[in-house]
Write a protein that binds this DNA or RNA. Structure first.
Lengths: 253, 253
DNA sequence: GCCAACGATTTGGAATGCAATATTAGAGGG
DNA sequence: CCCTCTAATATTGCATTCCAAATCGTTGGC
C-alpha cells in the first residue's frame, strides 16, 4: 500500500455518475448497487473488511453515502456490521447456503404455481426463447452466459406470478447466494442434469401444470444445493479472504 | 404547530438510550428499531410523510442516524424513499398484502416441514404451552395478548426449522404485514376458526407429520388473507393518512 | 377569477469535522 | 522469549454544515 492520496485506485468512478441519463439516482443508491455488485461478483471477498474511508475515496464519494449504502447491504445480509468495528463482507457457512437455497426453492415453488396460472402466452414464449438461448450457451460451453440466462429464466418465472412481494423477496435471497452459485457454475461438472430439468420446467409452464411446475422448481433448487456443495465446498476453501469474524453477530430485535 | 424548539414533543427519548445495560447499541440501530415499531404499531400512518429534521429532533438524535435508519427501513419495505422528496410510510395495496401473505404461507410451509423433522421435544412442548396461553387469551377475549402469542407461535415453528435464512426472511416479510394483521385482529369477527386451525397445527407438529403441518400452515395463511381482506378493507379505509404517493417507486435494479 | 412565472422557504442530499472506540506498535518486566 | 501494559494511530459513530432540489406563497398577466 504505497500510495495514499490517489483517489481512484482499483475501482473507477460510479457507472451512472457520469452518464446522467436516468434522472441521476441518489448517490447512496448508486453506491449500494456498485458495492452490491462488487460483493456478488466476488470482487470483494467474503470475510473481507470494508474500510469506509478507503472504499469511499475509491468510489469518489464521501463516507456518508457509503455508510448509508452499507446499512442497506447489511439488511440484505450481504455485509455484516460489527458495532465500532466496521463492515465485513458476509461469509455464510455451507449450512446457511443450504437454507437459503431451500428458501429460494419454496419461493420458486410458489412462484411457479402462480406463474402457471397467471403468465401470459407472450411471457411463456419469452421464457421458452430464453431457454433456447441458454441451450445455445450450453452448446458453446459459454458458462457465464449460461449462468446469467439461467438466472433470468427463474426471475422471469417469478415475475410471471404477479406477486410483487415474492419478486422482491426472491431477488433478495437470490443475491445472497449469487456469488456462490456463480462460482459453482464455473466449475460444475454435472452440467447436463440442470439442462434436462429446465426442459421439463418449461414444458410444465407451457402446459400450465401448476402442481408439476411447483414441484419441479422446488426439486431443481434442491439439486442446486447438491451441485453447489459438491463443487464449491469440496474443492478447496470456498472463500479466499482470511476470516476476520468472531462469530455471527446477532440481529437487533 | 405552536412549539418549534421543544426537542421531545410526542415521542420520548429512545428506550435503550438511557438504560445502557446491553453494551449500548449504535444509535442507527436504536432509531431503526424505534421507527420500525412506530410504523408496525400504527403510530406512523401508512402514506404519512416522514420529515427528517422533525422526527430526528423528536428522537433527540441528529439527522445522520435517522437517515441511516430510514435506509434500513426502506430495504425492509416499511418506508418508501422518493428521491429528493423524502420518506413516506409504506402503504401496500390489498393485492400486495395478499401476495405477502402468500409468501409467508410458502415460508411457513417450508418451516413447518423442517420443524416437524428437526424440532426438539422441548421446543414442541414450549409451542404447545404457548398455544394454551393463547387459548387463555382467547377465552378472556384479550385480543392483544392473543395476537402476540399467535405471532410468537408461528415464529417458534419457523425457529424450530433450524434455517437461519428462513427465520430472517420470514421475520422481514412478517413485519410488512404486522400492522395490517394487528388491525384485523382487533376487529375480526370470525375468530374461532383460527383457533381450531391452530389446534390442528400443534397436533401435526407433535406427531411430526411434516406434510400435514406444511399444508396446514399454508392453508392457515390463505385463511388469514380471507380475514384480513374482509375485516380491514371492507370496513372503511384501511389507512388513516391521506395518500401522498404518486405511485410506487421502482427499485434500483 | 384562474393560471403561470417567480422568489422565499423548507426539505432532502452529501461533505466535513470532531469525539469516542478499537487497533496497533512499542517498551518494560517477568 | 513471551506477556502485559501503555501510548500512538487508525477507524468508526455521530453531529454539524453546506448545497441543491422541491415546495409553497405571491404576484402579475390573461
Amino acid at each position: 500500500m504505497a500510495e495514499k492520496n490517489s483517489a481512484e485506485k482499483k475501482f473507477g468512478t460510479l457507472p451512472i455518475a457520469e452518464s446522467n441519463n436516468v434522472a441521476r439516482l441518489p448517490l447512496t443508491s448508486q453506491v449500494a448497487t456498485t458495492v452490491r455488485d462488487m460483493i456478488v461478483e466476488d470482487k470483494l471477498k467474503p470475510g473481507e473488511r470494508i474500510r469506509e474511508r478507503q472504499l469511499a475515496s475509491e468510489l469518489n464519494v464521501s463516507r456518508t453515502p457509503l455508510r448509508e449504502a452499507l446499512k442497506i447491504l447489511e439488511s440484505e445480509k450481504l455485509v455484516e456490521i460489527l458495532p465500532n468495528r466496521g463492515a465485513v463482507v458476509a461469509d455464510p457457512a455451507p449450512e446457511d447456503v443450504r437454507g437459503m437455497l431451500q428458501v429460494i426453492g419454496a419461493l420458486e415453488a410458489l412462484g411457479g404455481r402462480h406463474a402457471a396460472e397467471n403468465a401470459t402466452d407472450e411471457e411463456i414464449a419469452e421464457i421458452r426463447a430464453l431457454h433456447y438461448e441458454m441451450l445455445a450457451a450450453y452448446s458453446r460451453k459459454d458458462r457465464l452466459t449460461y449462468f446469467k440466462l439461467n438466472q433470468k429464466i427463474h426471475g422471469s418465472i417469478i415475475a410471471a406470478s404477479r406477486n410483487a412481494a415474492l419478486m422482491e423477496t426472491h431477488e433478495q435471497v437470490n443475491a445472497r447466494v449469487y456469488r456462490i452459485r456463480y462460482r459453482s457454475n464455473q466449475r460444475n461438472t454435472l452440467w447436463h442434469e440442470a439442462v434436462d430439468q429446465h426442459e421439463e420446467i418449461i414444458a410444465a409452464l407451457e402446459t400450465r401444470n401448476a402442481d408439476r411446475l411447483s414441484t419441479l422448481l422446488s426439486d431443481h433448487l434442491g439439486n442446486t444445493w447438491a451441485k453447489v456443495s459438491a463443487d464449491d465446498y469440496a474443492s478447496g476453501s470456498g472463500s479466499s479472504a482470511e476470516k476476520l469474524r468472531s462469530g455471527d453477530v446477532g440481529k437487533e430485535t
